[in-house]
Computed example of a mutant assay.
Amino acid sequence: MEFRNGRVFLIFLTGLAIWFAQPVFANKVRGIFSAQQSCPAFVSKNKSINPDNAQILAGNRYDIIEVTKPNPPAWYRIVLPRVNPQARWVSATCGQAQITGEDTGDNESGESDNNCNTAGQADSYVLALTWQPAFCETKPDKPECEIIDPDAYHAKHFALHGLWPNKKNCNKNYAFCGTVKKKKDEFCDYPAIQLDTASQASLAEVMPSVIAGSCLERHEWHKHGSCQENWSINEFFDLSADLVRQFNDSGMAYFMNRRINQKVRTEDFLNRLEAVLGSSARDRIKLNCNQQGMMVEIQLSLSGDLIAGADLEKLIMNAPVQEKSNCGEMFRVDRIGQ
Rank of each mutant, 00 (worst) to 15 (best):
L287A: 04
K168I: 07
L273W: 01
S124H: 15
I64C: 01
A119E: 11
E313Y: 06
D311H: 08
K45P: 00
G95Q: 02
A212I: 03
S325W: 11
W75N: 08
T93I: 13
A159L: 01
L13W: 14
A35Q: 03
I11C: 10
Y174A: 05
F247Y: 12
M294Y: 15
Y62Q: 07
C145Y: 01
C39T: 12
P208C: 05
F247P: 00
D149R: 13
L127Y: 11
A21S: 12
G337R: 14
Y125A: 09
P70D: 09
L13K: 06
H161P: 04
L57E: 09
I316Y: 00
I56A: 02
I11N: 08
R82H: 12
Y174T: 10
L10V: 10
L57S: 10
Q292V: 08
R30Q: 10
N326I: 14
L270W: 02
Y153H: 11
F20V: 03
T138F: 09
E102M: 14
N27L: 14
P85D: 03
P70T: 09
I211W: 05
S202D: 11
G178V: 07
V296S: 07
L312D: 07
E329D: 15
G120N: 09
P40C: 12
H154N: 13
K28Y: 12
T14E: 06
K183M: 03
P143D: 12
N27Q: 10
D63W: 07
A175G: 09
H157L: 02
S214W: 04
G105Y: 09
K28P: 06
T68E: 12
R259V: 02
Y254C: 02
L287Q: 06
P73V: 13
K183C: 00
P143L: 13
A21M: 09
E313S: 15
D189E: 10
V126A: 13
V276L: 03
H219V: 02
L287C: 02
V206N: 02
I65Y: 03
I78T: 02
N234D: 14
I307Y: 12
E205D: 07
Y254D: 05
E235R: 08
D242I: 04
C215D: 06
D106C: 14
D151P: 00
E217K: 01
T197G: 04
K142Q: 15
A119T: 05
N117W: 00
F269G: 00
R332H: 15
G59N: 08
Y125S: 13
R88Q: 11
C215N: 05
I233F: 05
S38K: 05
D334G: 11
V83G: 04
I193H: 06
V321M: 13
N60F: 04
G213M: 04
W131K: 00
E186R: 11
R4N: 10
R88C: 08
M317T: 12
P140I: 11
S303F: 15
W231N: 00
G309L: 08
H157P: 01
N326V: 15
F9E: 13
D106R: 15
G110T: 10
S279Y: 05
N234G: 08
Q55T: 11
K314C: 01
